[in-house]
Design a protein around this nucleic acid. Structure first.
Length: 563
RNA sequence: GCGCCUGUAGCUCAGUAGGAUAGAGCAUCGGACUUCUAAUCCGGUUGUCGCAGGUUCGAUUCCUGCCAGGCGCGCCA
């Protein structure tokens, strides 16, 4: 786990203290405890707090208070790092860090810049993040948008922890959906003799109803000579392929506008073109994980906790969707990826057990495969829910939301909540230019600092480097609070990445922006007669700006210079 | 019926590899603009952490049961 400069120093001090206590025979430490710190809830409990003593009490067979005293006695003399060390019942060790130690963070940020917050936990690891993967049978809706924002943010997060990340979009272009798409398009072809002349009449049950189908139909006939369309079967396939390609292009264009770029688009049909599906199943059959029963082939997923075994090849000889998934994931591993992350709509959670079982069957460890489930998005306008009905083909598309509220607001709102809980997306709030709009509030912090720098420049001051200023001048509690918040950032990133929870970054940024606005209002930064103080404050502002920008970048939200 | 997720302030939600007196925003009420962006800030008010047991020195966090809501349970994709 990556840690900030302060936590690293404190951890090693604690480690040292424990070792000393052990060599002195004060603690036996049969099992070495994990050295974790919390940021205490109350200021009087210090900057960092640890409960190691309480955890050790059982093994040492001594009261936690005594153990804490022992540890504290070995920490006490590190006066360069600690201002003071307190032991509080029942056995907390509360550490107060020397003020000047905190300010080292500013040097750190200045040196690392856009890399501040990066770590090496996943260095050398090849990670594949598969997300969106919407079937190309219509435009993306807001739910897909949330998946796109989450997947992309996860990709950023893992990149920050050193991973070599590939973003991939999987296209289900085998099976009935593309066929249905083809049929739907043909029904809307505006030519007599081929389509129904009832242009706007509802299509038969099960076909795609949206207006976009008619548009595709028009494009389809224009794309090829009429006489070529003769026999039904071939036309359906042709129309389906045409529509799929067109819709996929539009989907990727929407995502492009949404600032999501995929490194690869993987089409299901290539698995069949290259025989990957039968190969994968044969390999599993060789391990006796695939068997035949009632004329169908099954994967024995129940061996690894699934409710029942799953059909991979139906009695009629057709492969199931699950068979494609098996082959696809074999293919992912064969391409050298060590960690596979799939971002799915939460309605697919029922597939997770069979997928995990499949990973086992393939011989990979369970934690090499993770699924991030993304819950539904409900749009709210003027306090009332916006009606959405997929059945009638009326749903709010990602494009509509993007056009209405902008890419930044959309992305931030999608990432504002834990992704596995439903999201109420307030369209009014997202457009508001005031402090109750979180994305605005955070971006404004960034723009405000830029504006400040501009003003400083007009007064003949450039933002100095840390080495040129006297940081001891930053004596206000608000200044220390900002620095402490900045120090949290590296751990925030590594923890968000470990838990696959980008929303933590959104919360952090709101906190940081709050501290900034509050400070800005309370203390004038550009002092007239105290240029040394002003310079020190400019350094602090520069650091805040760097971290705000880094955090927004993780979320895929821009950091504007002016607003 | 079985499985997964959720239940925290009036509303929207954080917080859980067990830790101290449970937090934020919104709403509401009351304040602050000769000012580097008031596009902002400051202050007041708000809780049986769904309910009931259990494990523990300590539970919002872990376990069990119940209640409520959402989703999922095909040789569909």
């Amino acid at each position: 786990m990556s840690e900030g400069i302060i936590s690293t120093a404190v951890t090693s001090a604690l480690h040292e203290a424990l070792r000393k206590a052990q060599t002195d025979g004060q603690l036996r430490l049969a099992v070495w405890p994990s050295l974790v710190f919390d940021i205490p809830k109350r200021a009087e409990w210090g900057d960092l707090s640890t409960t190691v003593a309480m955890g050790l009490a059982k093994g040492e067979k001594r009261p936690p208070r005594e153990i804490a005293d022992v540890i504290a006695s070995h920490l006490q003399w590190k006066t360069d790092l600690f201002d003071h060390v307190d032991v509080v019942p029942p056995g907390y060790i509360n550490l107060t860090i020397k003020r000047d130690q905190w300010f080292r963070v500013l040097t750190e940020i200045e040196q690392q810049g856009t890399a501040y917050g990066d770590s090496t936990v996943r260095a050398g690891q090849k990670v594949l993040i598969e997300f969106v993967s919407a079937n190309p049978t219509g435009p993306l809706h807001v739910g897909h948008g949330r998946g796109a924002a989450v997947g992309d943010a996860l990709a950023h997060l893992l990149t920050r922890t050193g991973a070599d990340v590939t973003r991939e979009y999987y296209v289900n272009d085998v099976g009935t959906q593309v066929e249905t798409l083809g049929k739907s398009v043909l029904m809307r072809v505006p030519q007599e003799g081929l389509g129904v002349e009832l242009k706007d009449a509802p299509l038969p049950e099960g076909l795609y109803q949206g207006q976009y189908i008619s548009e595709i139909a028009t494009a389809f006939v224009e794309s090829q000579p009429l006489p070529a369309m003769k026999n039904g079967e071939a036309d359906v396939a042709e129309a389906g392929r045409f529509a799929k390609d067109l819709l996929l292009r539009e989907i990727l264009a929407d995502l492009h506008q949404f600032n999501v770029r995929f490194d690869a688009v993987f089409e299901e049909h290539t698995l069949y073109d290259n025989g990957v599906v039968p190969d994968a199943l044969d390999a599993l059959r060789a391990k006796e994980y695939v068997y035949t029963s009632e004329e169908a082939d099954w994967l024995a997923t129940s061996r690894w906790g699934d409710d029942k075994d799953r059909v991979v090849k139906r009695a009629n000889g057709q492969y199931t969707y699950f068979a494609s998934d098996i082959a696809y994931h074999v293919h992912k591993f064969n391409r050298g990826f060590q960690q596979l992350i799939n971002v799915w709509g939460a309605d697919h959670h029922g597939y997770v057990p069979r997928m995990k079982a499949m990973i086992h069957a393939l011989g990979y460890s369970e934690n090499s495969f993770q699924v991030s489930l993304v819950q539904l998005v409900s749009l709210v306008r003027s306090g009332k829910p916006v009606a959405m009905s997929t059945r009638a083909g009326e749903f709010v598309t990602l494009r509509e939301v993007m056009d209405e509220v902008g890419v930044d607001a959309a992305r931030f709102f999608f990432l504002m909540r834990r992704s596995d809980t439903p999201l109420d997306f307030d369209l009014d709030l997202a457009q508001r230019k005031s402090n109750d709009n979180p994305v605005f509030y955070v971006q404004y912090a960034h723009a405000r600092i830029t504006s400040l720098f501009k003003m400083a420049q007009e007064q003949g001051m450039n933002v100095p480097s840390v080495s040129e200023v006297d940081l001891t001048l930053l004596g206000f509690p608000e200044e220390l609070a900002l620095v402490k918040k900045l120090a949290e950032y590296p751990e925030l990133i590594s923890e968000s990445a470990r838990c696959l929870e980008p929303h933590r970054v959104a919360y952090y940024l709101q906190d940081l922006a709050g501290l900034l606005h509050s400070y800005y209002y309370k203390h004038r930064i550009l002092q007239v007669n105290a240029s040394a103080l002003t310079l020190a404050r400019l350094v602090l502002m520069g650091a805040v700006q760097t971290v705000v920008r880094n955090g927004l970048t993780v979320l895929g939200v821009s950091a504007p210079e002016t607003m």
